[in-house]
Design a protein around this nucleic acid. Structure first.
Length: 583
DNA sequence: GCCGTTTTCGGCCCGACTGTTTTCAGTCG
């Protein structure tokens, strides 16, 4: 039982409890699930050391949930969950994953129509029987079908954020095997694509059989499609397929290149090889029978007369031509960010205090962060004007105690339906950094949606447009906005566009970033952290998106020291910017 | 079900929006 398994069951409990309309309990389970998801220690280890008592010592986990977690780790489930499952035997997690479907609707659909699965629901909606239910109508039925279609489109692929850790861990485990000289993850993970279809691993090993035996016996493996001495294919318990290739040292670079792709990039490379009278395959670059390159990727590109192309650019979208001319951009590197401009704390829906987030930021080598809790329009937990004023005061006091670190007072301000902001200009004027964001009215027509966002960007206090398109990869489409118009408005108004690195968002996405870079509009890369564990998102995911969008460090202004960063914001001559929150 | 520098009981939960409704239930963040 991994932490992710426990988290999944806690969320399932919460969903089932929501069906029964019992107050507060669902939120308690959700909160516990959220906190455990952000934990960087295996729960099984916590239990082994301190039992259920150690679990209950964690914030958000009390006696009740601690006992259930211990039971889940032991048996995979717990009696309460089984009882709930028996009462309403439905695939509640899959059904509630459909946008607009929650636990109550799942219950009604089961009670009235016997819907247990997404397939059942699709059938019922197509037959027009959903609209007959109380509180359901034609629009809901249409929305259900739209939501299912969206999920189907993305089936079989998982977001990068859901697979990167596993890929790295398997890569490390393979690399530690005796007799393994090198191990690497290739494929779309290495290119840092946002949706991953399968995992490709590459290994140099003296005795391939040992590696293959180890690979098929991994606890994560649920099925073996095929096992040989050079290639083995398996299915993992995440539902994802994984391939392992064993190659010889002299072919490592060629194989890594071949298995990293993309297919289009590889085709283009092979065409260049043919032009030069060579042959390129996964074993090397060949002049006749003679291998002239293959040990390293650099060697392979060099043999083809090309500069080394970073994996994130290998999409045959112009990188080959620039590699030929040796004019590839010098992409932004992990570890170069100095600030993080979107961070939530316990003042709204975050799990950690301002001080804890500061400590986590410093530990990552950052020198400034902006605290940007939600404003009151987001009613669940937003800060109102009075609370925000209190927070600004607290941040000022905190800054006096900090050396070589600056906390910026900020907010994640809601954009209302008409494009105004839900917080007064007076309050906004007192903040160092104002982030603005869409959190409602996702379905406005394109013209209206675009005009609304641009109007908000025109606010002279609005510094950064957070998660500009509202997308949730694999779950929800972006809001309908004219991205070119947004970029033009950013340029005109001096509004910075954000790459929200939170793996559920990854917004802006790579191709949008490339447009922003081309337009010369500044970007920031933020974590959107809701806990200290999320502080790694910019380096793990945000930088990848920026690199896939051809961004250099110059395009991303939170690579700048804090004063230079602040100078790039709007109304930089206002008193708060000169004096800052330190005074 | 969790929490506690006022509390071991009584707060927590909340507003906007949508789609279904003549007054509100469900979803979302």
């Amino acid at each position: 039982m991994t932490n992710a398994d426990v988290v999944a069951r806690l969320y399932e409990m919460a969903a089932y409890l929501d069906m029964t309309s019992v107050p507060f309990k669902p939120r308690a389970y959700e909160k516990a699930a959220q906190l455990i998801a952000a934990l960087d220690r295996p729960l099984a280890e916590v239990v082994a050391e301190g039992g259920a008592k150690a679990l209950a010592a964690m914030p958000g986990v009390g006696k009740g949930i601690a006992e259930r977690i211990a039971e889940i780790i032991r048996t995979g489930t717990c009696p309460d969950l089984e009882e709930l499952r028996a009462a309403t035997p439905v695939d509640v997690m899959a059904l509630t994953a459909i946008d607009g479907i929650g636990p109550k609707m799942v219950k009604a659909l089961y009670d009235e129509l016997g819907v247990r699965t997404v397939a059942d629901l699709e059938q019922a909606a197509r037959a027009g029987s959903v609209r007959g239910l109380a509180h359901f109508g034609e629009k809901t039925e249409a929305k259900i079908l739209k939501g299912i279609a969206f999920l189907n489109q993305h089936s079989g692929r998982l977001p990068l954020g859901a697979v990167l850790d596993l890929a790295r861990e398997l890569e490390a485990r393979l690399g530690e095997l005796p007799g393994v000289e090198r191990a690497a993850v290739a494929g779309s993970i290495r290119r840092r694509k946002e949706l991953i279809g399968d995992l490709d691993f590459l290994v140099i090993a003296r005795r391939p059989e040992t590696v293959m035996d180890f690979f098929v016996s991994l606890p994560e493996v649920t099925h073996v499609y095929g096992k040989g001495t050079t290639k083995t294919m398996v299915r993992l318990n995440t539902g994802m397929d994984a391939d392992l290739r064993v190659v010889q040292p002299e072919s490592w670079g060629a194989a890594l290149n071949y298995f990293t792709g993309s297919k289009h990039h590889n085709v283009a490379l092979r065409r260049i090889a043919i032009e030069r009278g060579y042959k390129l395959n996964e074993y090397g670059v060949f002049a006749g029978e003679q291998s002239i390159a293959g040990r390293s990727e650099e060697e392979v590109y060099e043999a083809l007369g090309l500069a080394y192309v970073p994996p994130e650019l290998r999409e045959d979208s112009g990188e080959i031509e620039l590699a030929k001319a040796r004019r590839l951009p010098s992409l932004i590197e992990p570890g170069t960010l100095r600030g993080d401009l979107q961070i939530q704390t316990t003042w709204s829906d975050g799990a950690n205090s301002i001080e804890e987030m500061v400590a986590a930021a410093r530990a990552r080598g950052l020198t400034y962060i902006a605290i940007t809790d939600h404003t009151h329009g987001l009613a669940m937990m937003g800060t109102d004007d009075a609370k925000l004023a209190q927070q600004i005061e607290l941040i000022r006091r905190l800054n006096r105690t900090l050396r070589d670190f600056r906390v910026l007072a900020g907010a994640e301000v809601n954009i209302t339906k008409d494009g105004t902001l839900d917080t007064s200009d007076e309050i906004l004027a007192g903040l160092d950094v104002v982030g603005i964001a869409v959190h409602s009215h996702f379905d406005l027509p394109r013209d209206e949606q675009t005009a609304r966002v641009i109007r908000a960007m025109e606010n002279r206090h609005a510094d950064i447009l957070f998660h500009p398109t509202g997308r949730k990869p694999g779950r929800r489409e972006a809001i309908a906005v004219d991205i070119d118009a947004i970029i033009a408005a950013a340029k005109r108004t001096g509004t910075i566009l954000e790459i929200d690195a939170y793996p559920d968002r990854m917004d802006l996405k790579d191709e949008h970033v490339r447009k922003v870079v081309d337009a010369g509009v500044p970007l920031v890369i933020d974590s959107d952290a809701h806990s200290v564990a999320h502080m790694r998102f910019p380096d793990d995911f945000g930088i990848s998106i920026a690199r896939r969008g051809w961004a250099t460090a110059n395009d991303v202004i939170n690579t700048l020291p804090v004063e230079e960063f602040l100078a790039r914001l709007k109304d930089k001559n206002s008193p708060r910017r000169r004096g800052g929150a330190e005074n």
